[in-house]
């Protein structure tokens, strides 16, 4: 398929006798931002490392842009930029020297300056990296992944150690690059941040893919609730149930919103019955809620 940049098929990997990846298959569409999420130790970094040709794997097939990837086959890596686990930094080099060291011949000084500027690293880029803070090192790691303008970028926990402003800057850069056609595979625990970025989601648990969907599908699958705070919650529940509204099992009065649910009708019904409304809230299930529900219900059992 021409429009997928990464294809992982039936990937298996063992550490000793422990199987860390079990029959992992997924693909990444060109130009999409894909989130790879899962609990600690689920195998996210392992997948990313396998995709980067850093790991031997027992069986399976990985291709990037049609070229197969393994520790002995790295041709496709020319199109890839990555930050895995924590940024590798030489303490005796400055940030700028790192970027020069790892930039390709085709990468101009302007391109280097551009990424430094976008990551807001100008003030310290010529200082030795051993004096960098955690966040500064992280930014340098991201800059190194992006400096050669790769087609496909793999970022493992890129928001680690970044302050809120840097987080926002990073989001802007990623979205801008994606608009220009760069594909991203990003893992993160900060789901609220990830949610603002990704087009598709791959969920992994205990070495297996448990869910792959677009974000749009995930969001539409979630329940939308209308939560009402009243002077008499018990009575309100009775009234609403009799009025034909479906209530969610919760302590508060939460009405499951459907296409034809109108807030005005709810308010009118309650006030007609002499119940005062103190507060009304729309509640959407966010990525965190959906994900936790998914992981709780998934059928993967520890082997």
């Amino acid at each position: 398929m021409a429009d997928t940049i990464l294809n992982v098929e039936h990937l298996n990997k063992n550490f000793g006798s422990k199987q860390v990846l079990k029959d992992v298959s997924f693909s990444v569409q060109t130009g999409h931002i894909v989130g790879l999420v899962g609990p600690n130790g689920a195998g996210k970094s392992t997948i990313m490392k396998a995709v980067l040709g850093l790991f031997n794997y027992a069986s399976g097939k990985i291709t990037i842009d049609g070229d197969s990837v393994s520790p002995t086959s790295h041709k496709a890596m020319d199109k890839v930029g990555a930050l895995i686990e924590y940024p590798g930094i030489y303490p005796f080099l400055s940030g700028m020297q790192h970027l020069k060291l790892f930039s390709k011949d085709a990468t101009s000084q302007d391109q280097i300056d551009d990424i430094v500027d976008k990551m807001k690293m100008t003030s310290y880029i010529n200082r030795k990296a051993k004096n960098y803070s955690l966040g500064m090192k992280q930014k340098l790691g991201i800059a190194l992944a992006l400096v050669n303008r790769p087609k496909f970028v793999i970022l493992d926990e890129p928001m680690n150690g970044l302050d809120p402003q840097a987080n926002k800057d990073l989001r802007t850069i990623i979205l801008e690059l994606a608009k220009q056609g760069t594909t991203f595979l990003i893992s993160s625990h900060i789901l609220s941040e990830l949610e603002k970025l990704i087009d598709d989601l791959v969920v992994i648990d205990k070495g297996q893919i448990v869910y792959t969907q677009s974000m749009a599908a995930l969001e539409s699958g979630g329940k939308k609730l209308l939560v009402v705070k009243t002077s008499d919650d018990a009575k309100a529940k009775d009234v609403l149930a009799q009025g034909g509204y479906q209530l969610d099992k919760a302590a508060e009065v939460s009405i499951v919103e459907k296409d034809d649910t109108k807030m005005a009708d709810v308010i009118k019904l309650l006030s007609d019955n002499g119940i005062d409304i103190e507060d009304v809230q729309h509640v959407h299930s966010d990525l965190e809620t959906s994900l936790l529900a998914l992981l709780r219900n998934d059928k993967v059992k520890e082997s």
């Binding site: 490392k49 980067l52 040709g53 850093l54 002995t72 790295h74 041709k75 496709a76 890596m77 020319d78 890839v80 990555a82 895995i84 686990e85 924590y86 940024p87 590798g88 930094i89 030489y90 303490p91 790892f102 190194l144």
Partner: peptide, 13 residues
């Protein structure tokens, strides 16, 4: 320094 990953994931053998 953890730079081995950066060295190895490139196009080189």
């Amino acid at each position: 320094y953890g730079t081995i990953k950066e060295l190895l994931y490139r196009k080189y053998y």
